[in-house]
Amino acid sequence: MEGKAVLFKQFGGVDAVPICLDTQDVDEIVAVVTALAPSFGGINLEDISAPRCFEIERRLDEALPIPIFHDDQHGTAIVVLAALRNAAALLDRKLGDLRVVISGAGAAGVAVAKMLFAGGVSAGDTVVCDSRGIIHRGRPDLGATKAELAELTNSAGRTGGIVEALAGADVLIGVSGGQIAEEAVAAMAPGGIVFALANPTPEVHPDVAARHAAVVATGRSDFPNQINNVLAFPGIFRGALDARATAVTDGMKVAAADAIAGVVAEALSADAIVPSPLDPRVAPAVAAAVAAAARRDGVARA
């Protein structure tokens, strides 16, 4: 948490105070954050697991007139959208034509799915898998969040597990930590895209993924195309604070993704679909885009 506060300051010029709460109770967390909120211009939630993270963020959003942002969800999702935009551009593909598989239906997986839909990926052509297999309308074990995903996604009604999901798919986005066999990746459509983001052990090793995919990204710093949240959160909060935004809207998140993608858009290669996490151009570009989007979306007070 202290390290993240340093990154806020270094890249976004945002003063951040790490506060750790010794509770996992939703009501307690909401009550404490609400009581602390008058001292802060925004709240960055961290390390709260699904499904409680969804309710906590929703309740705080409704209760407080400042930006609430759960980085484990939205930071990852924003950078994934930026990377997928550039990967699709590099391969001369359109986001709406891609068949996407998301492995993982926790906080990051749900947020990635919703972010991709907001950015132009077809929800019907997206399949989300959890530890029990493909999420589909006929599954009896779905909670509220997964039931919502089942209604939005998988219009073909696919069933089974990750192997069945990946057959013929164009994109794999791994945010689960579960291992995926090479044979399943090999069954994807030719010229595919694999983002295996579990860290330190990706769902499929990048060297293995590269045998079958045209573009590969990971969450690790020792391989190309690191999907790192630091590309998003400092600039998002800088822009939201500059606009005195009352919330972080979907439009602001999409604008952040577009800005991240734009930093390297003129020099794309299979090994460079996102900027380096240390690229000093990223946070100012994201901040400007987010502030402008806040004004467009009617949540800015400056």
Rank of each mutant, 00 (worst) to 15 (best):
A144I: 04
T126L: 12
G157C: 04
D125T: 03
V163G: 14
G160F: 09
L142P: 03
H136F: 11
G119E: 09
L152V: 00
A169F: 13
T153L: 15
A118Y: 04
G106E: 06
K146R: 15
V110F: 14
E148H: 10
G138L: 11
D130L: 10
G133D: 08
G161F: 03
C129T: 15
A156N: 02
T126K: 01
P140D: 14
S155D: 10
A165V: 04
A105F: 13
A150L: 07
K146Y: 06
E164P: 03
V127C: 05
P140V: 13
S122F: 14
L166C: 05
S122T: 05
A108K: 09
A113H: 14
V112P: 06
V128L: 09
G120Y: 01
G124P: 05
A167V: 07
P140S: 14
A108H: 07
I102L: 14
C129D: 03
I102E: 11
V112K: 08
D130Q: 10
I162P: 01
S131N: 08
R139T: 08
A169I: 00
G106V: 08
V127E: 02
T159F: 01
T153P: 03
A123K: 12
A169N: 03
G104I: 04
V128M: 04
I134Y: 13
E164N: 02
G157M: 04
A123F: 01
A123H: 03
L116Q: 08
I162E: 00
G133L: 06
V121S: 13
K114Y: 15
A147V: 00
A113S: 14
A150P: 06
D130M: 12
E151H: 11
I134W: 14
A105N: 09
R137L: 14
T153V: 13
S103M: 07
S131K: 12
G168K: 07
G160R: 09
D130Y: 13
A111K: 06
L152N: 01
V121E: 04
G104F: 01
R132Y: 02
